[in-house]
Design a protein around this nucleic acid. Sequence first.
DNA 1: GTGAAAGCGCTAACAC
DNA 2: GTGTTAGCGCTTTCAC
Lengths: 308, 308
Amino acid sequence: MHRSGRFTAETESQVLDAIQKLGFRPNVLARQLVQQRTTTLGVMVGALDNPFYAEMAMQIERESAAHGFHTMFCNTYGDAPAEIWALESYLDYRVAGILFVSNPSEPKRARQLIERRVPTVFVTCESEWGDVVRCDDEEGGLMATQHLVSLGHRRIAYFSDPIDDAANQDRQRGYAKVMRKAALQSSVVRWDRKSAGVADTTVSETVRHGATAIFTTDDYGAIELVDAADRLGINIPRQLSVIGFDDLIMSGLGRIGLTTIRQPKMRLAQVAVSALVDRIKGQVKGPPVRHVVPVELIVRGSTAKANG
Amino acid sequence: MHRSGRFTAETESQVLDAIQKLGFRPNVLARQLVQQRTTTLGVMVGALDNPFYAEMAMQIERESAAHGFHTMFCNTYGDAPAEIWALESYLDYRVAGILFVSNPSEPKRARQLIERRVPTVFVTCESEWGDVVRCDDEEGGLMATQHLVSLGHRRIAYFSDPIDDAANQDRQRGYAKVMRKAALQSSVVRWDRKSAGVADTTVSETVRHGATAIFTTDDYGAIELVDAADRLGINIPRQLSVIGFDDLIMSGLGRIGLTTIRQPKMRLAQVAVSALVDRIKGQVKGPPVRHVVPVELIVRGSTAKANG
DNA sequence: GTGAAAGCGCTAACAC
DNA sequence: GTGTTAGCGCTTTCAC
């Protein structure tokens, strides 16, 4: 604005009033076009009806806004074409950066589309070429399994996600390490939770085979297992201990009371958005950076001493 | 594309290859600038860590994508300045339309900012000047209360949200109508769920005053009440029936088992996005339109016959 | 300091 | 049809 003495204060305020009244707003599109940079972030997130993603999305949006960035969201929903469409749109919009909250369904395509073109950060998931912000998933797996072992459980099953991503693998590795150390036999169950009734049969099988505890790769799955156990009349935690991973808001409800490994979602979002913004501003250059955020064991009612 | 015989097929495919290889993508900003229209939608949504908003956000994003529109989200979080910032940003971005999923915290400011400038649809909330897509909230209130009355309850309390929006009022009106008709005394409790321990004292008070049933204005609140009742040792539904509103995914969990009035979230999103797109394309003109979507009673375990 | 001019990457309108 | 041109609304540069 030209604040010279050229115009009287009156004229100036009249102009300002007019701007207010007419609701004039500078055109961001034009500015961004000429400046060759935007303040838009593209966020790829698994379905928002999964509370973990919803909670992450919320934190990311808040954090981005705090940095002056606007967020465009896409529920990938495991739908590869939709994901590619969104990714291409982000490029067309010349987003300043991209945030993956869940693994791309077509990692190679995603990579060739965006690598070296727009800064990208992977939160809660893995990548060979972009910055990664993750919890210490192996440590979490260790803590979860150790918790169960220290409660006297000997037959502990690990329930893995059908989407076998890095987080899942690391948690499983933590599990396997503790089991080996304790000279216990590992038992990994991969279940497809999409199909109805699968939880029931899987839990029932697992218990029939003698398991007294289950470590599930995420809370949302754990809650389904608890639901199944309830239906089957299997008492939790008396007959079966269940521990999850994530610490969703709903996991803390009295009726759910899920013991779990907490992922600090706000912290993850903060680190991820900061990392992305640093890349965008060019304050960080060079090879991919990895950020690891610590996890925490939250003990609630779904785990108890093994009887006998 | 110029598909004349001017160039050989070979040349053409070479060019196309180059486009692919270099990852050329047309600049949406430039196109939108010259076309004077965008395919971006701005969505104002209460905090995404509230499952109702998360579920709505997901449906809206999916539906928008199906119409070829991109969504920018803002968690209002009841934070008026953040909301205004987002709204102004949407205008700066020249969004094609705006969707309110929760009431603006500053309705007047919001109105003067966007009215007659960009098409706006209010889903699940109310407006005097924009299109509205809502459930039949009064009918829902009627159904919920009728359900409790028909179970033999005489002292039924209505738990209202501190944010006394139109949806809340309509549900309350439905409640009041049924109570009057049944010659029962209404009892409306307004509680501020933000403060800790409030649920406990409020529930305890309500039961002490003789209530055997509570109708809460939303499931998320109802679940908190159930949690409180559990802590207080009040058995649900034996001593206290609880019915909510929304039908969140988590309300259907065995351990929650909340009787509720379902808002069809997918349908709401479809109608809302269609209405908005119609306005954007100019296929609908003139005064605000109201769309009403029917609700449905879902009976689960949190309500039962009144004893005595 | 101030004002004019160039140009960001597209689309639409217009001659040819 | 096909090639050229103007211009969307800004920022930046460069004379003055």
